[in-house]
């Protein structure tokens, strides 16, 4: 599936829920189901500090694809983190560099990715792209 197809898939999943509470319930569920973060990577270097919540992001290269592992101390943020992982994990650096993120807007969670909402998510997306750029040059 292409990145855009995944975004369409996520949008569809959320569009079936008209109530904000159901959408947040789904986010919370996604947060709870996110693969556990390996403690050895919970380092200051991998920490993206928001004003209100923290995000940890670890990235590595497997052949020509970037793998991501992430976590947050706030469950709603973790739910969004889980969506970003679903989108970007196991992609080539080029795909990530070129990616345009539009699904967050579409599923009504725009406020969480606005620069004024300092929950670490904006910085996380930026960091994922930085990793992609770095790995692209490494190759």
């Amino acid at each position: 599936m292409t990145l855009n197809e995944v975004q369409e898939e996520i949008t569809e999943e959320f569009s079936m829920l008209d109530d904000w509470m159901d959408r947040y319930s789904l986010l919370i569920e996604l947060g709870n189901d996110l693969d556990s973060f390996e403690e050895e990577y919970r380092t200051d270097q991998n920490l993206i500090e928001g004003c209100q919540s923290k995000v940890w992001l670890h990235a590595w290269l497997e052949e020509d694809r970037i793998r991501f592992m992430a976590d947050s101390d706030a469950i709603i943020v973790k739910g969004i983190v889980s969506l970003l992982i679903r989108l970007f994990d196991n992609r080539t650096p080029q795909e990530i560099v070129d990616a345009e993120l539009w699904f967050i807007d579409k599923i009504g969670l725009k406020e969480h990715l606005s620069p004024t909402r300092s929950n670490g998510l904006v910085a996380m997306v930026k960091q994922m792209k930085m990793y992609a750029l770095a790995f692209q040059h490494k190759k």
């Binding site: 947040y24 209100q52 101390d73 706030a74 469950i75 929950n119």
Partner: peptide, 19 residues
């Protein structure tokens, strides 16, 4: 987490501060 509580309460019309 206070952020989660604040975010959901906001959706219910409550203005408070977390952090």
């Amino acid at each position: 987490h206070p952020f989660d509580v604040g975010t959901l309460l906001d959706k219910m019309g409550v203005a408070l501060r977390t952090g």
